[in-house]
Simulated assay, not measured.
Amino acid sequence: MADIDAWVWWLIAAAALGIPLVITAMPEFGMLSVGAVAGAVTAGLGGGIVLQVLVFAVVSCALIVVVRPIAARHRAGQPQLATGIDALKGKQAVVIERVDHRGGRIKLGGEIWSARTLDGDAVFEPEQQVDVVDIEGATAIVM
Protein backbone atom coordinates (compact mmCIF):
# COMPACT_ATOMS: atom_id res chain seq x y z
CA MET A 1 0.00 0.00 0.00
CA ALA A 2 3.00 2.26 0.47
CA ASP A 3 3.71 1.93 -3.23
CA ILE A 4 0.50 3.74 -4.20
CA ASP A 5 0.85 7.48 -4.66
CA ALA A 6 -1.27 9.82 -2.54
CA TRP A 7 -3.13 11.18 -5.56
CA VAL A 8 -4.44 7.67 -6.31
CA TRP A 9 -5.82 7.42 -2.76
CA TRP A 10 -7.56 10.75 -3.26
CA LEU A 11 -9.13 9.48 -6.49
CA ILE A 12 -10.28 6.32 -4.70
CA ALA A 13 -11.83 8.56 -2.02
CA ALA A 14 -13.52 10.65 -4.73
CA ALA A 15 -15.01 7.51 -6.29
CA ALA A 16 -16.05 6.21 -2.87
CA LEU A 17 -17.84 9.51 -2.17
CA GLY A 18 -19.50 9.32 -5.57
CA ILE A 19 -21.20 6.02 -4.74
CA PRO A 20 -23.47 7.42 -1.99
CA LEU A 21 -24.16 10.39 -4.25
CA VAL A 22 -25.68 8.04 -6.81
CA ILE A 23 -27.47 5.89 -4.23
CA THR A 24 -28.92 8.66 -2.05
CA ALA A 25 -29.02 11.58 -4.52
CA MET A 26 -27.54 13.84 -1.83
CA PRO A 27 -25.49 16.49 -3.65
CA GLU A 28 -23.24 17.00 -0.62
CA PHE A 29 -21.47 13.73 -1.44
CA GLY A 30 -20.72 15.08 -4.91
CA MET A 31 -19.23 18.22 -3.41
CA LEU A 32 -17.04 16.15 -1.10
CA SER A 33 -16.03 14.06 -4.10
CA VAL A 34 -14.94 17.20 -5.97
CA GLY A 35 -12.94 18.18 -2.89
CA ALA A 36 -11.20 14.79 -3.02
CA VAL A 37 -10.35 15.37 -6.68
CA ALA A 38 -8.85 18.73 -5.68
CA GLY A 39 -6.82 16.87 -3.06
CA ALA A 40 -5.63 14.46 -5.77
CA VAL A 41 -4.55 17.35 -7.98
CA THR A 42 -2.67 18.88 -5.06
CA ALA A 43 -0.94 15.54 -4.39
CA GLY A 44 -0.13 15.17 -8.09
CA LEU A 45 1.51 18.60 -8.10
CA GLY A 46 3.70 17.59 -5.15
CA GLY A 47 1.84 19.20 -2.24
CA GLY A 48 2.33 17.68 1.20
CA ILE A 49 -0.33 15.79 3.09
CA VAL A 50 -1.27 18.83 5.20
CA LEU A 51 -1.81 20.92 2.05
CA GLN A 52 -3.79 18.10 0.44
CA VAL A 53 -6.16 17.82 3.40
CA LEU A 54 -6.44 21.60 3.60
CA VAL A 55 -7.32 21.87 -0.12
CA PHE A 56 -9.86 19.03 0.28
CA ALA A 57 -11.49 20.76 3.25
CA VAL A 58 -11.54 24.24 1.71
CA VAL A 59 -12.91 23.10 -1.67
CA SER A 60 -15.54 20.82 -0.10
CA CYS A 61 -16.70 23.45 2.40
CA ALA A 62 -16.75 26.18 -0.25
CA LEU A 63 -18.90 24.05 -2.53
CA ILE A 64 -21.28 23.16 0.28
CA VAL A 65 -21.56 26.77 1.46
CA VAL A 66 -21.95 28.29 -2.03
CA VAL A 67 -23.55 25.67 -4.27
CA ARG A 68 -25.96 23.99 -1.85
CA PRO A 69 -28.11 27.10 -1.16
CA ILE A 70 -28.23 27.88 -4.88
CA ALA A 71 -29.37 24.33 -5.66
CA ALA A 72 -31.96 24.43 -2.86
CA ARG A 73 -33.36 27.73 -4.18
CA HIS A 74 -33.50 26.35 -7.69
CA ARG A 75 -35.25 23.17 -6.57
CA ALA A 76 -37.78 25.09 -4.44
CA GLY A 77 -38.50 27.61 -7.19
CA GLN A 78 -39.65 25.07 -9.73
CA PRO A 79 -43.42 25.21 -10.11
CA GLN A 80 -45.26 21.93 -9.94
CA LEU A 81 -47.07 21.13 -13.16
CA ALA A 82 -50.78 20.68 -12.51
CA THR A 83 -52.34 17.89 -14.54
CA GLY A 84 -55.71 16.20 -14.75
CA ILE A 85 -58.43 17.61 -12.56
CA ASP A 86 -55.90 19.67 -10.58
CA ALA A 87 -55.28 21.70 -13.75
CA LEU A 88 -58.99 22.55 -13.96
CA LYS A 89 -59.27 23.98 -10.45
CA GLY A 90 -59.27 27.76 -10.55
CA LYS A 91 -60.28 27.95 -14.22
CA GLN A 92 -63.23 29.92 -15.50
CA ALA A 93 -66.14 28.25 -17.24
CA VAL A 94 -69.32 29.35 -19.01
CA VAL A 95 -72.72 28.17 -17.81
CA ILE A 96 -74.59 26.20 -20.50
CA GLU A 97 -77.62 25.13 -18.41
CA ARG A 98 -78.72 26.78 -15.18
CA VAL A 99 -76.46 25.73 -12.29
CA ASP A 100 -77.68 25.56 -8.70
CA HIS A 101 -77.11 23.29 -5.69
CA ARG A 102 -78.85 20.38 -7.50
CA GLY A 103 -76.79 20.59 -10.68
CA GLY A 104 -76.47 22.03 -14.13
CA ARG A 105 -73.98 22.14 -17.01
CA ILE A 106 -70.93 24.25 -17.80
CA LYS A 107 -68.42 24.45 -20.60
CA LEU A 108 -64.95 24.01 -19.12
CA GLY A 109 -61.82 23.73 -21.24
CA GLY A 110 -63.86 23.07 -24.38
CA GLU A 111 -65.82 20.23 -22.75
CA ILE A 112 -69.29 20.04 -21.23
CA TRP A 113 -69.23 19.23 -17.50
CA SER A 114 -71.86 18.56 -14.89
CA ALA A 115 -71.69 21.26 -12.25
CA ARG A 116 -73.21 22.36 -8.99
CA THR A 117 -72.72 25.42 -6.84
CA LEU A 118 -70.46 25.60 -3.82
CA ASP A 119 -73.02 27.76 -2.02
CA GLY A 120 -76.43 26.12 -1.76
CA ASP A 121 -78.24 29.43 -2.36
CA ALA A 122 -76.30 30.53 -5.45
CA VAL A 123 -77.80 30.21 -8.93
CA PHE A 124 -75.99 30.84 -12.22
CA GLU A 125 -77.85 31.38 -15.48
CA PRO A 126 -76.66 30.44 -19.02
CA GLU A 127 -73.83 32.57 -20.45
CA GLN A 128 -72.57 33.59 -16.98
CA GLN A 129 -68.90 33.11 -16.11
CA VAL A 130 -68.17 30.92 -13.09
CA ASP A 131 -64.99 29.85 -11.31
CA VAL A 132 -64.25 26.18 -10.76
CA VAL A 133 -63.20 25.64 -7.15
CA ASP A 134 -63.11 21.85 -7.05
CA ILE A 135 -63.88 18.69 -8.98
CA GLU A 136 -65.79 15.85 -7.32
CA GLY A 137 -65.91 12.82 -9.58
CA ALA A 138 -67.27 14.13 -12.87
CA THR A 139 -68.91 17.20 -11.34
CA ALA A 140 -67.35 20.64 -11.18
CA ILE A 141 -68.03 22.66 -8.06
CA VAL A 142 -68.43 26.32 -9.07
CA MET A 143 -68.92 29.73 -7.54
Score class of each variant (00 low, 15 high):
E28F: 12
R102K: 12
P27C: 05
D86W: 05
V55R: 03
T24C: 11
L21S: 12
V94Q: 13
V55S: 12
K91I: 04
K91V: 03
K91D: 01
L11K: 02
F29E: 03
R73F: 04
S33Q: 10
A25I: 07
R73K: 15
G84N: 01
G104I: 07
V94N: 02
G30F: 06
F56D: 02
G110E: 04
L81D: 06
I85A: 15
H101K: 14
G47M: 04
V67C: 12
E28I: 15
A16R: 01
A40R: 02
Q92S: 11
A40Q: 03
A76E: 10
I12A: 14
H101Y: 12
H101I: 11
A36K: 03
C61L: 15
S60V: 11
R68T: 14
R73I: 08
L45V: 08
R75S: 10
D86V: 00
R105E: 12
L11T: 04
W9Q: 09
C61K: 05
V34C: 10
G44Q: 01
W10V: 05
G39M: 06
A76S: 11
A38P: 05
A38N: 10
G47A: 14
Q80A: 15
G47W: 00
I70H: 15
V55Y: 03
A62Q: 07
A40I: 02
L32H: 12
A57R: 13
M31F: 13
S60W: 07
W10S: 04
L51C: 03
L21R: 13
V55M: 07
K91R: 15
A76T: 11
A93K: 08
G110N: 09
D100F: 06
V55I: 15
T24Q: 06
K89D: 02
A38R: 08
M31I: 09
G47C: 03
G90R: 04
L108K: 13
G109E: 08
V22W: 09
A25E: 05
A72Q: 15
R75I: 12
L54W: 01
L45K: 07
V55P: 08
L45E: 01
E28M: 14
P69H: 11
L45F: 04
W10H: 07
V99W: 00
A93N: 06
I12L: 14
